[in-house]
């Protein structure tokens, strides 16, 4: 076969695969991740040299994810639940490309906006306005895009009179409201949220609930949460992670049952 023919064939198969994946927003295949946890005090150069001389490894291999595979369809609201330390947050960080996987792959079809934590980069010494622009830049928005969004963000956070004050003078509720309002303005094809639903007072929570309900069906969302109520309320499908593996997958009702069964 000629070089050009081979190339053409390869391109065709690639195109075929892409066509198959068109309905899929996220595809995770056999994802594995482990961390080296330092035993005693393996911090610093001295200990590292000692450990090498003594033949001590100085760390323990902790397998956090032991082969996880799942798919998220476009427009689907997926919930991820599990105990503390089961690997949920590690999974989100792998999806967000913050960590590099040991093996396996993550395929993202579209653009992804991660909120591992609200208000990343918020600095107490800067004003509310400056923090909004800094946070926006970290999320990949240009200044002119932020100019357009700014009014909406401030309005949703209900902080019109406070934007020129330093963040350290905000109450903690106000800070979270501001961070949350930026988060829901940053629209990508896929939204990743780590336990950030319950913020602010009752009135503000109501507003956020309405917003999440409006997302259902037209936005791909991956949500990590401990609230079974939220899983039932928002999610189309859920995954239970236990000891780095998927223990249960399917309808929210089924998964929340399996989750509560963990403690019985």
């Amino acid at each position: 076969m000629k070089w050009s023919d081979r190339y053409l064939k390869k391109m065709q198969t690639v195109a075929k695969e892409e066509a198959l994946n068109d309905e899929i927003a996220v595809k995770v295949t056999d994802l594995k991740k482990s961390f080296k946890l330092p035993t005693e005090r393996a911090w610093g150069l001295k200990q590292a040299i000692f450990n090498r001389l003594k033949g001590v490894k100085g760390y323990k291999q902790q397998e956090v994810l032991r082969g996880i595979s799942f798919e998220v369809k476009k427009g689907e609201f997926l919930g991820i639940v599990g105990r503390n330390g089961s690997g949920k947050s590690t999974l989100l960080k792998l999806l967000s490309e913050i960590y590099t996987p040991d093996s396996g792959s993550v395929k993202i079809n579209g653009t992804l906006v991660p909120f591992i934590e609200l208000g990343v980069g918020f600095n107490p010494e800067l004003t509310g306005r400056e923090n909004v622009y800094l946070n926006g830049a970290l999320l990949g928005f240009s200044n002119s895009e932020m100019d357009k969004m700014y009014e909406e963000i401030v309005k949703f956070a209900e902080l019109e009179q406070f934007m020129d004050q330093k963040l350290k003078n905000y109450s903690s509720g106000m800070q979270v409201r501001l961070a949350f309002s930026i988060a829901i303005r940053a629209h990508g094809d896929i939204l990743i949220l780590d336990e950030v639903l319950a913020v602010g007072d009752a009135a503000f929570q109501e507003k956020c609930n309405d917003y999440f309900k409006s997302l259902r069906g037209n936005q791909t969302v991956i949500l990590v949460t401990h609230s079974m109520e939220n899983v039932l309320k928002f999610c189309d499908r859920a995954i239970l992670i236990e000891e780095g593996k998927i223990a249960c997958e399917g309808k929210p009702e089924k998964v929340t049952k399996a989750y509560t069964a963990l403690w019985q």
């Binding site: 653009t111 992804l112 906006v113 991660p114 990949g140 629209h187 990508g188």
Partner: peptide, 8 residues
């Protein structure tokens, strides 16, 4: 809604 952003 606003423009889509790429985070990769």
């Amino acid at each position: 809604m606003l423009e889509y952003k790429n985070m990769s």
